[in-house]
Simulated assay, not measured.
Amino acid sequence: MSPSFSVVLATMLVVATTAGACIAGVELSLELSLSSYLLSCPSTCLQHGSDPNIAEQQIVKDVTQAAVQRNPALAPKLLKLHFHDCFVRGCDGSILLDSTARNKAEKDAWPNLTLGGSEIIDEIKTKLEERCPRVVSCADIIALAARDAVSFLYGSDSLWPVSTGRKDGRVLKAEEALANLPLPFSDFATLLRRFQSKGLDVIDLVALSGAHTIGVSHCESFAARLYDFTGKGDTDPSLDKRYAEILRTKCPPKFNNGVTVEMDPSCSLSFDSHYYQVVEQHMGLFRSDAALLEDSTSAWLVDFM
């Protein structure tokens, strides 16, 4: 990983907001801190003399890294879970809420139907409840687990610091996922508007797109680039022709919705800057990847990374 990529990506992933009330009754400060559990975690819940912040983060790290060691594909899933949580009402854990008879939850909106990793969050929450009941929010667990999963994949103890103190949200609004999340078929102008609505800029957009260096995608997220880009049965002209042929073999016209393709060709489990090389070679999987070359500033940043 280039120094520029690691520094910028780490900086962007520290960005977080809080929103909503608390699912588990967790009442923490609205201010995020690296020591938010020093006063809120009862001493009886901790081993004698231990730092509550270290204790709770160690539990998250142990469970997460054990899971990723068993299944490396969980790392990109946990990172995506965190990103999708944060882009709707802030990093409030609402991505975990189930739909009710009256309201459809975020997790059931189209962009979130392929999300995974929630079972790891549940496992961590169970262990933390045994130690410190109703203290550590699911929102904090998601943020910590994303960091620890990617750090393990990268071979580092910690790629970026994660402050804690988020509250868990209760609001169920599936339509907000579609209205807020950057979508894989978005052009540059649409992507930038959605990032700017969160107080983020073009640097954030390019840096966070780099998360596509790990993980896979289902064919439906990019099939239009192969078979019907402008509604006339054509292929996206910005897509490398040889790469388009490879994608067509993996995702034929009548593809199986369960088929997945690496977002970073042949490099989907290595957290590095290779994604940006792929984008420059016109082999970005999504329309949103190719869109980074549409703007002079974002194109320069892609080259810089």
Rank of each mutant, 00 (worst) to 15 (best):
G93I: 00
S266A: 02
D201T: 02
K173I: 00
T18V: 12
K232T: 04
E56D: 01
S118W: 09
R248E: 04
D140G: 03
F286H: 14
L200D: 05
N112A: 14
P111G: 01
R102A: 14
K241T: 05
F271R: 08
F304T: 07
I142A: 05
D92Q: 09
S186M: 11
V63W: 03
L292C: 05
D234V: 02
D148Q: 04
M283H: 09
D98P: 10
V150D: 14
V60M: 12
P184Y: 13
H82E: 12
V26I: 13
T100Y: 05
V216M: 07
N103E: 07
V278H: 10
D236I: 02
V15P: 03
A21F: 13
Q277T: 09
L183M: 12
A299P: 09
E245R: 08
D272N: 13
I121W: 09
S151F: 00
M12D: 08
F87W: 11
S35N: 12
L34H: 02
S186K: 03
C41Q: 04
L192Q: 04
N256D: 15
G284Q: 10
W160V: 11
E176A: 11
A223P: 13
P42K: 04
D264T: 05
Y275G: 09
T297R: 07
Q47T: 04
A223D: 10
V8R: 08
D51R: 00
V14R: 15
A101N: 07
V278E: 13
E106T: 00
A179I: 02
I23T: 14
L192S: 02
S273T: 01
M263W: 10
R194V: 00
L38T: 15
R170C: 13
P42L: 03
L81Y: 04
A24F: 10
K167Y: 08
L144A: 02
S163R: 08
G93L: 01
C251S: 06
P133E: 11
G155W: 06
V150G: 14
T126I: 04
R193H: 04
P52F: 03
S156G: 07
K241Y: 01
L144F: 03
C132M: 09
A291C: 05
A223W: 11
H274S: 15
F304G: 08
S270P: 03
S50D: 13
L46N: 13
K104T: 06
P237Q: 03
D85H: 02
L79S: 12
R134A: 14
P161G: 04
L34N: 11
A16Q: 15
C267F: 08
F271N: 09
E129C: 06
S296V: 14
D148M: 01
